[in-house]
Amino acid sequence: MKKKVLGCLCILLATALVLGFAQALLQPKYMTSAREGALIAEYYNETDRSHDVLFVGDCEVYEGFTPPTLWEEYGVTSYVRGSAQQLAWHSYYLLEEMLQYETPKVVVYNVLALKYGEPQSEAYNRLNLDGMRLSASKLRAIRASMTEEESFASYLFPLLRFHSRWKELSAEDFEYLFHRDRVSHNGYLMQTEIRGGTSDITPVPLTDPSLPKTSMEYLEKMRLLCEEKGVAFVLIKAPTNDWKYHWYDEWDAQIAEYAQAHDLQYYNFIPLCEEIGIDWSTDTYDVGAHLNVYGAEKLTSYFGRILVSEFELEDRSADASLAAVWEEKLAVYRAEKAQ
């Protein structure tokens, strides 16, 4: 009897190990393509979680703000927890999770994704949620994010989602089976390519000028969460020159009104591009949709001044241990930029 029980236990253990191995192997690694997918999980690699500023939002934050620049110019530590098509509820639950780990002085939220009131696509949900560690925030985020075709279980056991990748395994899957390389600089995903230009398509007029109720509810939740934690909550709209990411005046007015009503700072950088010094012929890598590293540095430098003056962030570059960590980060940042 004892032997039989032991035999069964061994088989169960071996099965669990095979399942674990299969899951690790079959999950996308996001190391050489769709690198945005690796951003969310990178936050957990941070050894020092005493950031002055946390950014949350969609691609406009992880392509628009470079923490190494903020450190280099202002001695301010920051982390960008941005991800591709990060919707308002993603941002809220990511922020909720981060505020369990640390209490920054300022949280910056990019408002573009507020235009989406419903879950958009499974693929983007994956990029936003798979990297999160299992927590109550993650479970709530999954519930809020799922499209009709998705199943909750597949987020808890990603093998259920990615099992069919056995047909498309590549060398990357084996190389990064048990580890990942760093792809970002404190959440900033560097793009050095220059592909300037402007969009000449006129945005279609809005049929409904108001921002969706659901996303505004999550904005309010973010504000309340920051208020509860005693963190300044700042709204921004990153610059863009592409009609796909057009920020309508009606939306702008609505956010400005919301900010005023709750005594928040709201910075729309679109009309400030000239003042920031953004040149759309050199500061974008995808014809105006997003900034490249040159544009991002200009924007960060500009916004850093605001952060320091408006939120009285102190220059921490005199802190030797912190400086050592950030000098290392800067060196890596510079090296990648120089490539």
Binding site: L19, L26, L160
Partner: peptide, 18 residues
């Protein structure tokens, strides 16, 4: 049972994409 479960979970045609 464990073998069949593994085969089903990995080689089954289920979930998104099917």
């Amino acid at each position: 049972i464990c073998g069949l479960t593994l085969l089903i979970l990995i080689f089954g045609a289920y979930g998104i994409g099917y």
